[in-house]
Amino acid sequence: MSARTDVKTYPGFFAITLLCMVILYAPLMVVTVYSFNASPSITVWEGLSLRWYADVFTGPESDKFKQAAFNSFSIALIAATLATAIATASATAIVRAGRFRLRLPSLGLITLPILVPEIVLAVATLIFFNSIGFTRGYMTILVAHIAFCIPFAYLPIQARMQGIENTYEQAAMDLYATKAQAFRQVLLPLMMPGIISGFLLAFIVSLDDFIITNFVKGAGVETLPTAIFGSVKQGIKPNIMAISTMLLSLSIMMVTISYFLSKWDNTK
C-alpha cells in the first residue's frame, strides 16, 4: 500500500481510533482494575487486594455462585457438544448431498435463529415448553441452549466444508474405502478445525446467554449470567467485578484458542 492512500494518513484517524478503543475497552479496564480493589466501594480505590476473589469462593454468596457456575459450565459443555454433532451432520448433508430441493430452505432454517431477535426466540421457547407441559428447570435451559447453539456451531463447520473438494471422498472410495471409512478417515479430519471452532463458539454463546435462559429457567435454577443479574439488582458489589474478570479471562482464552485453531491447518 502506498503511503498516499494509507488509511493512517486520513485526517482524524488517530482521534477516531482512540475514541473507539476507549468506548470498547475502558469499561472492561475499570471492571478488571476495581476487581482488585480492597474497598467494598466500587468507586473508591483503597489499595490492591484479592479479597473479592476470595469472597466469590468463600463469601456469603459463594454457594449460589458455585451452583450457578456448575450449571453454566455443564450446560455449555453438553449443549455445545450436542449442537456441534447436529451441526456437523447438517453441514455434511447440506454441503455434500449435492443439489436437493430443500437445500436452500434447510440452510435458511438452520441459520435463522441467529437473525431472529433473541427476545422473540426466548418467548417462543417459553411458550413451547409451557404448551407441552415441560416443567421449567435445568433441562429446559439445556434443551433451549442446544437449539440456539446449533447455528453458531454450524457456520464455521460449513465454511470449512465448502473448502473441501468432493474429489477427496471419491478418491477414498476409489481406493476401497466404504462411505463410512471415507467419512471417518478423510472428511472428518479435514473438517476438524471447523468442528472445533464451531464447538468453542457454541460453548461461549451458551455460557454467555442471558435472555433465553432467564425466560426458560425454573425457580431456583441459575446460571452465572442470571445469578450475576440477580445479585446486581441488590446493588453492585466488587465480588461481581471479580466474577466478571474471571469470565473475561476465560473468554479471552477461548477466543485465543479459537484463533489459533483457525490458523491451524492439518494439511501442512
Binding site: E165, T167, Y168, Q170, A171, A172, M173, D174, L175, Y176, A177, T178, V186, P189, L190, N266, T267
Partner: peptide
C-alpha cells in the same frame, strides 16, 4: 458394484491427494 468394490483405481485431474 459401488466404487470401493471395483478393482480399478483412478488418477484424478486435480490429483485429490488427501491433504492431511
Amino acid at each position: 458394484l459401488p466404487p470401493h468394490q471395483r478393482p480399478v483405481n483412478t488418477v484424478f485431474q486435480n490429483y485429490a491427494l488427501f491433504p492431511h
